[in-house]
Design a protein around this nucleic acid. Structure first.
Lengths: 219, 219
DNA sequence: AATTGTTTTAAACATTCGTTTATTCCACGC
DNA sequence: GCGTGGAATAAACGAATGTTTAAAACAATT
């Protein structure tokens, strides 16, 4: 075995560079030279750049998916058919998201990658994620439905994505925002600190009063 | 003058392609061929691809900035030194954002571009926007401060960006989300409809209770 | 009609990219 | 020791990119 496995070194380097610059802006040559690995190694071990991108995501999402399913199993057993409160669901989601990358101290990278998955073109990535991890989102989404029976179907769908936007946007653009915050408010925030701030905002957003029906149909 | 001005045709085509695929993924050859314009025209009229990207943004943000300043002038005159209520500020912001691209029916494109400006690498773009339009944000941000005196400085800063994330993330990923919503809920939403849904969520998020101080200092 | 300055055009340029090839290296089993 | 097979390497390939060049086309002025 080399000093560290070549595959691991590629993944470690790639995820950081992808998170910093995006996929198209990160060349295989940049990755392999920074990882001190031969250029051809990526195609040898992963097959293509697309496959490397997917592998980077899988390394986070596989453990996340497994742990989150497990955590939801426990919650469902605990609540025995009753609806699980929204705060508990959100808390569990947050805890799992925090746990997974904690071992490698890469929470920031993970968040940024999630943001990229949504905003970057890369149709193959969206398909890959949808195909491999769509059921986790479905399950969570069903539980949220039972926790917020007062919300109309569509309203809940949109609010979930509003909140997803809040979290991913903030945490994925964290570095830039933190620079401003440091400068203007002399208060250095950690990711965990931010999540503490996010919680009441997300809960309040989900439970906001329904919009009035004016202008319901519009062009 | 050609059928339509070459510069305009380039801008019209570029903004749509940028919004669809991002900046790095859109080549000058794709733009110029779709715009039925010679490849060299971009470098002749704009100087470089970077300058073209900035010009695309300026065409939206210049009118936006002007109108928004003007709207805030009127509000300040109307409230004569009193604090302008948060709802009014948000309403004014939303109205201006809706007005600017309305003339070209390009609200979706505008929103997507805003999202890209935040999430794509393109350091030059962030610098350009900060430099040219930073004062509009500052002014708005000051008015929000006066409207929410109960919020600690830093908390308000972060909540503003939480809400910015909600809006930009949702509207810039609109097409993908709308596909799902159409399929699952048979309810087709317009951008204006979404903004109607967004309003109570944003207001509630800004006015959410403060987070408890547990774990205030964390790694 | 000739001249001027601007715009358009086709072609080439120099890089950079992802991928492939052919070779070398190296550990392991026989 | 020898051969075998997986891994690493250097080099090249073909395609695509942003940019530049130099000539042609055009419009307006005198």
């Amino acid at each position: 075995m080399a000093q560290t496995d070549t595959v691991t070194r590629i993944l470690d380097t790639a995820e950081v560079l992808f998170a910093e610059r995006g996929f198209a802006e990160t060349s295989l040559r940049t990755i392999t030279s920074k990882a001190k690995v031969n250029l051809a190694a990526v195609n040898y071990h992963f097959g293509s750049k697309k496959a490397l991108i997917q592998a980077v995501f899988a390394r986070y999402l596989d453990p996340f998916s497994e742990r989150f399913h497990q955590a939801l199993d426990e919650l469902e057993a605990q609540y025995r058919g009753e609806a699980i409160p929204l705060e508990v669901l959100l808390e569990t989601l947050a805890r799992t998201v925090l746990e997974v990358p904690a071992e490698r101290n890469s929470l920031k990278v993970f968040m940024r990658l999630l943001g990229l998955a949504y905003t970057q073109a890369q149709g193959h990535l969206r398909r890959y994620i949808q195909e491999h991890y769509g059921n986790v989102f479905s399950r969570f989404s069903d539980l949220v439905r039972r926790a917020t029976p007062e919300l109309p179907e569509a309203e809940r769908f949109w609010r979930l994505h509003f909140m997803l936007g809040t979290v991913i946007f903030t945490l994925s653009g964290l570095d830039a925002l933190r620079d401003i915050a440091d400068k203007d408010y002399h208060e250095h925030v950690s990711v965990r600190d931010l999540i503490r701030r996010l919680r009441p905002v997300v809960v309040a957003g989900m439970q906001a009063p329904l919009p009035d029906d004016a202008l319901k149909v519009a062009g």
